[in-house]
């Protein structure tokens, strides 16, 4: 039984589960829809056969795709998320990933390079020093996880907008996609990428990002749920082709705006 999106109950080794995640999910989903049949009225009135998990899943995902469009309409590119005094910052922040803490693989900042690809004019890789040389923005914002918990954190680094300008990105492209050292692909819409509170964060609470939180660089955007903030970023791609993401494949909404 899979108990969670974020903390699969990794016994005895998370790797085994990772390799069969899709299968396990599918199996549990099937069980879920069987139980759904007992909701007799539901079956009767929706006209859907809930035992046919593929069609129900497809219908639910179609609504989710529609919700993504509604969310994009609700998103106000000029609306800033509330900010808070530094005294409210949680130190250290909460750790979260799709694997347990001891599976974190620290990245060596000295040899780390950020690859740039897609619809950009300058594909030269970036170093931490180069990122640190861009104008830095500091923000104290609320992190909201899809699970329901939240905390206030202080992040700083260059805005993703300034980075995209620096690499000559096509700002009319639809998506900015991220690849990470922990194999957690993610992507956001261009409007969010250009939001003034979307940073390539290099520090937390004015200290270099500690290993479990994504050193040397992670995304922090104030207008999306936590799972849209990939850590340990290794490559950024500007593209018009829908890139999806790690949790989105399992059914989490893609837009995930807050």
């Amino acid at each position: 039984m899979i108990r969670s999106p974020f903390r699969p109950q990794a016994v005895p080794d998370a790797g085994i589960l990772d390799n069969h995640r899709a299968l396990v999910r599918q199996v549990t989903r099937r069980g879920m829809f069987r139980r759904g049949i007992s909701l007799g009225a539901l079956t009767m009135l929706t006209g859907c056969n809930l035992s046919d998990d593929a069609s129900v899943d497809a219908a639910l995902r179609a609504v989710s795709a529609f919700n993504d469009k509604v969310q994009a309409l609700l998103f106000d590119p000029n609306k800033l998320a509330p900010t808070y005094p530094e005294s409210m910052v949680l130190k250290p922040p909460r750790f979260n990933a799709y694997y347990p803490i001891d599976k974190v693989r620290p990245v060596d900042g000295a040899t780390w390079k950020l690859e740039v690809s897609g619809r950009v004019s300058d594909r030269a890789p970036w170093t931490t020093a180069r990122l640190a040389a861009l104008p830095q923005t500091d923000m104290v914002i609320r992190h909201v996880c899809v699970e329901g918990w939240d905390y206030i954190g202080e992040w700083s680094g260059p805005t993703l907008k300034s980075f995209l300008h620096s690499v000559g990105a096509d700002l009319n492209a639809r998506y900015v996609a991220f690849h990470t050292a922990d194999d957690y692909p993610s992507s956001i819409d261009m409007a969010t990428a250009l939001h003034p509170q979307t940073l390539l964060a290099l520090t937390y609470a004015r200290e270099t990002l500690p290993d479990p939180y994504g050193y040397p660089v992670r995304l922090r955007t104030s207008t999306k749920l936590g799972y849209k903030n990939p850590k340990w970023i290794t490559a950024i791609e500007v593209t018009n082709d829908y890139p999806g993401g790690f949790w989105e494949k399992s059914g989490f909404g893609w837009f995930a705006g807050i």
């Binding site: 899979i2 969670s4 549990t28 879920m32 899809v146 399992s250 059914g251 989490f252």
Partner: peptide, 9 residues
């Protein structure tokens, strides 16, 4: 929903 994603859907 067997876990959060289908419940959210």
């Amino acid at each position: 929903g067997a876990w959060a994603a289908p419940s959210l859907l």
